[in-house]
Design a protein around this nucleic acid. Structure first.
Lengths: 331, 331
DNA sequence: TTGAAAGCGTTACCAG
DNA sequence: CTGGTAACGCTTTCAA
């Protein structure tokens, strides 16, 4: 592996000149620079990023903290993040937190060990608020996705969950449904709380009494949605429509309903939330609320990139994306 | 950020002793060691991995080269890789090659710049063979997934594609089908070639004449499967069964068939390959050939970990996994 | 425009 | 068992 010294020797100059030449800095004779660049190419020189980062204190790497990188929900967010990061030569480093942020040593592994310049945190739950606020104190640049923290200094990206849920429920109401159930996510996640709130509000606005029995938790999981739907189907009178808090749970509901032998949407309607890639392929294709995940991913990196120079931003960016009703055939 | 020197000063010893103490090396008085560890904890010391890697020449990071990290096919492989890597404290660094390996600067970005100790390469195509063989010359530890290179020195992990395809086709034959079509992947990928071969062999063994018209390329894409199926459906006589080269294309075929108004499996049967998470949820649930993707991911990292100490392995590991027929309701 | 020297934080070698 | 010194490859500062 060729180093800067090798090039310096061959070019008959000092290492400092080589460094400046290769980094397009001022104060290098154009001829010398050209010669150095030429030699570097010949020797197939690539800078050792470790050595560079050690002195510059910048890694050009962004840490991404995520519950589970293999969840289909995240795929478009990830793609969006790469789109922006690749363009500016930044690297993304993932940390699957699986359980909670506290338990994982993400901070030490990524930040304290100086591997990343900043963090994107996706989908934290409300018990992790202290952890996040602490990041602020430590002056670590970071942005949150799927979360809106009150603190004005925190950069947040999220969708209008309450409005989207309202939209979904209202669509069901417009279609004539009054016995509308909701399969919710775990209530320690802001997103789940907001969607439940939107559901309730739509009901209230339509003067449909809220029936707590019609709300079941599906933990944002396929299996959970399946089980919740099963319970719902056994009630009398049973709901004629289900608003699932995300598509994954809606898939489970679809499955439960089909096993139960009911026709969708004639006997029972289902609407989801997210619009995963697969939702156009379910049986029947799932009507749902789309979130612009790709755009959210792009936005996260854009914001972070602006933060990285280190100048304290007076206040954080709050980027709220609108949701969109995607009509298919399950309602 | 506390450094080793800060600790040394506080403990009244030299930096070298601190380093040894913290790395559990021999030659440190137990009392001194305990004291140092205590102080390190108090000061919330975390080693700067860049500085460490610079001298040890090891990053404890594995580069993963993959076409598109957000493809659902890869999710379980990735999860498997993390399972093993996390256990030993290794980091995974992804590079989406999107197009071809040559075009991407993966080698320079990851290897030449000394960011990774080794590479896992997933799903390369046959035009990239030279590139891969070159890795061998450069003595870069690497393992291939979804590829079987003849060269005995290359570590390869793959499934029995030909056998799996044979199994799929044969299952169709057993069910009484004789007009069996195949939607294949692009033929510059070994996997696609092997599956086509398995299909042909099953046909031959059953003395069913091979009809080239019954083979269409779907490029391993959903849209491609959809289009290929449409063409197939317009033939007379049309096939009574389709073996899709992967599940994604099978989804497209399912969609095309349902739009065409044919009943599955009564009027036309469909079988896929891969067994993606979603395949139990299609309409009807997709009969397919499972590959143990999670296990393959685990295996890749295990092999690489054994390679990393640097001792030349006499010969590469060839890990072939069996496929398994998953019977659902599309056949 | 150039170069010598210092330094980033760590580990490794060698003497004591 | 301990500590001083050099080294990893690079950037940066300061003088020439």
């Amino acid at each position: 592996m060729a180093t800067i010294k090798d090039i310096a020797k061959k070019a008959g100059v000092s290492a400092s000149v080589v460094s400046r030449a290769l980094n397009n800095k001022y104060g290098v004779n154009e001829k010398t620079r050209a010669k150095i660049i030429q030699i570097a190419r010949e020797m197939e020189y690539y800078p050792n990023v470790l050595a560079r980062s050690l002195v510059t204190r910048k890694t050009e790497t962004i840490g991404v903290v995520i519950a589970d990188i293999s969840e289909p929900f995240y795929s478009q967010i990830i793609k969006g993040m790469y789109t922006v990061a690749d363009r500016v030569g930044y690297t993304l480093l993932f940390s699957n937190s699986y359980e909670s942020l506290e338990k994982t040593n993400v901070l030490h592994k990524m930040v304290d060990s100086e591997r990343v310049d900043g963090l994107v945190i996706i989908g934290s739950n409300i018990r992790e608020t202290d952890f996040i606020l602490n990041l602020l104190k430590e002056r670590i640049p970071f942005v949150l996705i799927e979360r809106n923290l009150e603190d004005p200094a925190v950069n947040c990206i999220w969708v209008e969950n309450k409005e989207g849920a309202y939209q979904a429920t209202n669509y069901l109401i417009k279609k004539g449904h009054t016995r509308i159930a909701h399969i919710s996510g775990t209530q320690d996640i802001q997103v789940a709380i907001d969607r439940l709130a939107g559901y309730k509000e739509a009901l209230a606005d339509a003067k449909i009494p809220f029936n707590p029995e019609f709300v079941r938790t599906g933990y944002f999981l396929h299996e959970g949605g399946y089980r919740a739907a099963k319970e719902l189907l056994q009630m009398t009178p049973r709901p004629t429509a289900i608003f699932a808090g995300n598509d994954t749970m809606a898939y489970g509901a679809l499955q439960a309903i089909s096993e139960f032998g009911l026709a969708i949407p004639d006997e029972i309607a289902v609407i989801g939330f997210d619009d995963l890639e697969f939702s156009g392929l379910t049986n029947p294709p799932l009507t749902t609320i789309r979130q612009p995940r790709f755009e959210m991913g792009k936005k996260a990196i854009s914001i972070l990139l602006r933060l990285l120079p280190g100048e304290e931003e007076a206040s954080g960016v709050k980027a709220v994306f609108p949701t969109q009703l995607v009509v298919r055939r399950s309602v």
